[in-house]
Simulated assay, not measured.
Amino acid sequence: METIRLEFQPKIKAKLLELLSSFSSDELKIEQEDPDFDENKRKLDASLAKIKNGTAKFYSLEEVDAFLEETISKYEN
Rank of each mutant, 00 (worst) to 15 (best):
M1C: 01
M1W: 05
M1K: 06
E2R: 13
E2A: 10
E2W: 07
E2G: 09
I4S: 07
I4K: 09
R5G: 12
R5P: 01
L6C: 11
E7F: 09
E7S: 14
F8K: 07
Q9S: 14
P10Q: 12
P10E: 15
P10T: 08
K11P: 00
K11F: 09
K11H: 11
K11Q: 13
I12H: 03
I12N: 03
I12E: 04
I12K: 04
K13S: 06
K13F: 05
K13W: 02
K13T: 05
A14M: 07
K15D: 15
K15E: 14
K15C: 02
L16Q: 03
L16S: 04
L17E: 11
L17C: 04
L17N: 09
E18C: 00
E18S: 13
E18H: 12
L19P: 00
L19A: 14
L20T: 03
L20H: 01
L20W: 05
S21L: 01
S21K: 10
S21I: 00
S22M: 11
F23I: 03
S24C: 04
S24Q: 07
S25Y: 07
S25W: 01
S25R: 13
S25H: 11
D26H: 11
D26P: 01
D26T: 09
E27S: 09
E27P: 01
E27C: 02
L28T: 04
I30R: 06
I30Q: 05
E31A: 07
Q32I: 05
Q32G: 09
Q32H: 05
Q32A: 13
E33Q: 13
E33V: 14
E33W: 01
D34S: 06
P35A: 06
P35F: 02
P35T: 04
P35N: 06
P35V: 05
P35H: 03
D36G: 05
F37E: 13
F37L: 15
D38C: 02
E39Y: 10
E39G: 02
E39Q: 14
N40D: 08
N40S: 09
R42F: 08
R42M: 10
K43F: 06
K43T: 04
K43L: 14
L44W: 12
D45N: 11
A46R: 06
A46M: 08
S47F: 09
S47P: 00
S47R: 10
S47W: 08
L48R: 12
A49L: 11
A49E: 15
K50H: 10
K50A: 12
I51N: 05
I51L: 15
K52P: 00
K52I: 02
K52H: 08
N53R: 07
N53E: 12
G54C: 04
T55N: 06
A56Y: 07
A56H: 08
K57Y: 01
K57R: 12
K57F: 00
S60V: 02
S60F: 01
L61R: 10
L61G: 10
L61K: 08
E62N: 07
E62F: 02
E62H: 02
V64D: 03
V64S: 04
V64Y: 07
V64F: 08
V64A: 11
V64P: 01
D65P: 00
D65R: 14
F67H: 11
E70V: 03
T71K: 15
T71V: 10
T71Q: 14
I72D: 09
I72M: 10
S73I: 00
S73R: 15
S73N: 15
S73A: 14
K74Q: 15
K74S: 07
Y75V: 06
N77Q: 12
